[in-house]
Amino acid sequence: MMTTEIQFVKIATSDALTTYIHNKIDPLATKYPWLIKAQVFIKKLNDPKGKTCSCEIEMSLPGPRIYASSIEENYEVAVKNTISDIEKQLKKRKESMTSH
Rank of each mutant, 00 (worst) to 15 (best):
L35G: 11
P62Y: 06
N74R: 04
A38V: 06
T52G: 05
S54I: 00
P64Y: 09
K43H: 10
L28I: 12
I36S: 13
I57L: 07
F41V: 14
R65C: 05
K31A: 13
I57M: 07
E76I: 05
F41Q: 11
E76A: 07
S69Y: 12
A29V: 08
S69P: 01
G50D: 06
Y75N: 02
S60C: 07
Y32F: 14
I66L: 15
E76K: 11
S70Q: 12
E58P: 00
W34Q: 11
L35A: 11
Y67S: 06
R65V: 07
A38P: 10
C53D: 09
D47H: 08
A38F: 13
P48W: 00
D47F: 00
L61S: 07
K43F: 05
E73K: 09
I57W: 02
A38K: 09
R65H: 12
K43M: 08
L28V: 08
I66G: 05
P48V: 00
T52W: 00
K43V: 06
K37N: 14
Y75P: 01
Y75L: 04
F41P: 01
F41D: 12
L61W: 03
T30G: 13
P64K: 14
E73H: 10
S60D: 15
C55N: 06
L35E: 10
E76D: 12
I71D: 05
Y67W: 12
S54Q: 12
P33S: 09
K37C: 10
L45N: 07
I36Q: 14
I66T: 05
T30F: 07
E56R: 08
A38Y: 08
E58S: 13
L28P: 06
S60A: 13
K49Y: 08
G63T: 04
S70L: 06
E76G: 04
K51T: 04
S70D: 15
E58N: 11
S70V: 08
C55W: 00
Q39L: 10
I71W: 01
S54W: 00
A29H: 14
M59S: 09
G63W: 02
K51P: 00
V40W: 01
N74C: 03
L61K: 05
T30E: 14
E56C: 04
A38D: 08
P64E: 13
E58H: 07
P48N: 04
Y75Q: 01
V40C: 09
S60Q: 14
K37T: 11
I36R: 11
K49W: 03
E73I: 02
A68M: 04
Y67A: 06
S54T: 00
Y32L: 08
E73C: 00
I57F: 02
L61F: 05
T52Q: 14
K44A: 09
D47M: 03
Y32W: 09
I36D: 14
D47V: 03
F41M: 09
D47A: 06
S69K: 12
I36V: 15
M59I: 15
N46I: 05
K44V: 02
Y67F: 15
P62M: 03
K37Q: 15
K37L: 12
S54H: 05
V40S: 01
S70M: 12
G50S: 05
R65K: 15
S54A: 07
I71L: 11
P64N: 14
P48L: 01
P62W: 05
N46F: 02
K31Y: 03
K51G: 01
